[in-house]
Write a protein that binds this DNA or RNA. Structure first.
Length: 152
DNA sequence: GCCAACGTTGGC
DNA sequence: GCCAACGTTGGC
């Protein structure tokens, strides 16, 4: 099993949206970055995912989701009415993929970015690296244990 | 709203 | 294949 972190602007798709989704499950659509896509390709059913809110207050990890379906072509790339439409992508040769994630648990309180920066052992976490913009990131097992131990 | 960091595009 | 220009992300 592997561990991951996904970033989202809550004005686009929030933790509350995930909880309210049918089956508390959503396709993680709209990722249009090759590195992030490549990580999604490595995601397997049962992998755990930190859910992080960006561009908001507080900047924080809110809870944990679980991968319930591994990578498959992101349907929004074929939909001309979608903001994620990619005219260069075809069903025969799709460029972008998505995974399905499901709500797993919510932390008793969000773990904020400033707080994470204080915690020994997280110095190399991708989220905390300067200029890191990756919206889908790997988390090491050790980082996962340190962060999840901060909350019930 | 600013701006640093990063990714992508396209001329050459 | 280089790299300047441009667009986007995201913390502050």
């Amino acid at each position: 099993m592997k561990y991951w972190l996904v970033k989202t602007e809550p004005s686009e798709f929030s933790w509350e949206d995930l909880k309210a989704a049918p089956g508390q499950t959503t396709p993680w659509e709209g990722v249009r970055n090759y590195q992030a896509r490549n990580y999604m390709r490595k995601m397997q059913v049962g992998d755990l995912v930190f859910f992080y809110h960006s561009q908001t207050n507080p900047l924080a990890i809110i809870g944990i989701a679980i991968v319930v379906r591994g990578a498959y072509p992101d349907p929004t790339q074929f939909d001309p009415s979608s903001p994620y439409f990619d005219p260069q992508s075809t069903p025969e040769n799709p460029r972008w993929e998505t995974v399905d994630i499901q709500y797993q648990r919510e932390f008793s309180a969000p773990i904020s970015l400033p707080q994470l920066k204080e915690i020994p052992g997280l110095e190399n976490m991708v989220l905390l690296r300067k200029g890191s913009r990756l919206s889908v990131q790997p988390v090491t097992e050790r980082e996962w244990r340190i962060v999840s131990a901060l909350r019930e």
